[in-house]
Design a protein around this nucleic acid. Sequence first.
DNA 1: ACAAATTTGGACACTATTGTCCAATCTGTC
DNA 2: GACAGATTGGACAATAGTGTCCAAATTTGT
Lengths: 211, 211
Amino acid sequence: MLSHPEAPSDEPRSKRAAILDAAAATFCKEGYAGASIDAIANTAGVSRQTIYNQIGDKEKLFKAVVAQLTEYSSARFFAILETFPTEPRNLEQELTAFAKRLLEMSCCDQHGKWLLRLANMEGQRHPDLFAAWRQYGPGRKYPAIAARFAQLAHAGYLEVDDPTLAARQFMALVSADIRFDMQFGTRPSQAEVEANAESAVRTFLRAFAPR
Amino acid sequence: MLSHPEAPSDEPRSKRAAILDAAAATFCKEGYAGASIDAIANTAGVSRQTIYNQIGDKEKLFKAVVAQLTEYSSARFFAILETFPTEPRNLEQELTAFAKRLLEMSCCDQHGKWLLRLANMEGQRHPDLFAAWRQYGPGRKYPAIAARFAQLAHAGYLEVDDPTLAARQFMALVSADIRFDMQFGTRPSQAEVEANAESAVRTFLRAFAPR
DNA sequence: ACAAATTTGGACACTATTGTCCAATCTGTC
DNA sequence: GACAGATTGGACAATAGTGTCCAAATTTGT
């Protein structure tokens, strides 16, 4: 059968997945230049040659990693966004639960963490790649959340002038504490995540609840 | 004269400074592994040998860069903290001006930007180095700001239960928009900085002003 | 102008990495 | 069991980077 090097769809799934996972981890830990193909192959439990066969040179490998992380992370986010409390019975409680889900997904999830790290590290080097990420990532996340807040405001649950601003500030508050721990690879504890979500939502509602 | 390799204090100031600046820029752009000594020497307009004479191997160079950036950035921050409006006549206006100063210093200043980037990129690789940074950086910043907010609360200008939390959320709101642009090296415009400071302070005060 | 220190550029050995080639081996399918 | 395709390990040239050495050139202090 044909096996396009670009879209090897299904067959070599597990090998390819192992390679991409190992590559993501290694790129994150060592940076693009510092990540050697040998190290990646070793981590993936795969011969170096297999990487060249399946994916291609280092540049293509990097792009494939970013593409996969972007897709995966974006899918997770929009799945969670479906659980936004559009018609809340207890706004604070349900918004807090939503914030917790978001934190657990966005900050403690390895893929999202890796993607953010790679964007920070190699953003200048591959501007085209991460321009796409920016559009699919933050560029679609904020408007999506903003729409939900606008909905809440329209229904009288909130008092917001600028939903986009509210969305950005909500995200900023929710991920306030986490960024440092996250960037260092130290996973914040469950208790920290919950406490942070609670205080973030409390402050957010103090600012945007109807008077 | 003695010329300690560790503390060459004054004499070779300009060469050493040029080296450290070039090294910081190159490490930021290329990562630790990707930054070659030749490239750094070239950028600094200096012979490669001079780097080895003045500072030592790559590891020492990196440590020297981080140390200098940490010191510089910390000094700038605490200088600006002196201008915190402890006895405000118009709280919103003065706090906004303070936020603008903070943004201009912390986000648009090259050294702070570089330090943050290096911490994100190489934090896992040099945990000891950045543990020190964490203590001197965020670890001292937040308590310092928290103390000011506690002061304001005690004087009746604010209504905060947990000053440390308020400080973290203040910083999160202030730097909400900027992070993305900053990480990508694109400097946010003056107008963006000001708009962000204003909306951040407005939201902060809506949450923490006395009812 | 002289002497001391510093800087320079180039050569050097050494190591690491990339990407390719290939024969041997393993895999699953008929 | 035989076959095709994928996989492996190892060898390979080419390139790039690190850190050292040294003699010549340059800057610096006096």
